[in-house]
């Protein structure tokens, strides 16, 4: 079964994050991703970047990954 930890690991390996939280039940997952790489990117481009780190896992293992993406500055404003 897919675990939140394994998703977290894939994302961390694939991109530079300053904050990352993943929760989920094995089929549906939720992630909060904070990264400098998101600066100047659209929402679609941000999600595509995260999906890229998961590669074929998104097509095969993971039914749904709900995401919120922030730059470090946006994340600070959220707090």
């Amino acid at each position: 079964m897919v675990t939140p930890e394994s998703i977290k690991h894939s994302i961390e390996q694939g991109m530079a994050v300053t904050h990352l939280a993943v929760a989920g039940d094995g089929a549906h997952f939720e992630a909060v991703v904070v990264s400098d790489e998101f600066a100047g990117k659209s929402r679609v481009q941000r999600h595509q970047r995260v999906y890229q780190t998961l590669g074929d896992r998104m097509r095969e293992e993971i039914h749904a990954l709900s995401m919120k993406t922030f730059t470090p500055q946006e994340w600070q404003e959220q707090q």
């Binding site: 679609v44 999600h47 595509q48 990954l65 709900s66 995401m67």
Partner: peptide
């Protein structure tokens, strides 16, 4: 759309996003 999940919304031919967006 280089987008691995469903649903996908398009407005005037442009990919807008999935459920979260």
């Amino acid at each position: 759309a280089n987008w691995p999940t469903i649903p996908q919304l398009y407005i005037n031919g442009e990919f807008i996003g999935g459920s979260d967006i």
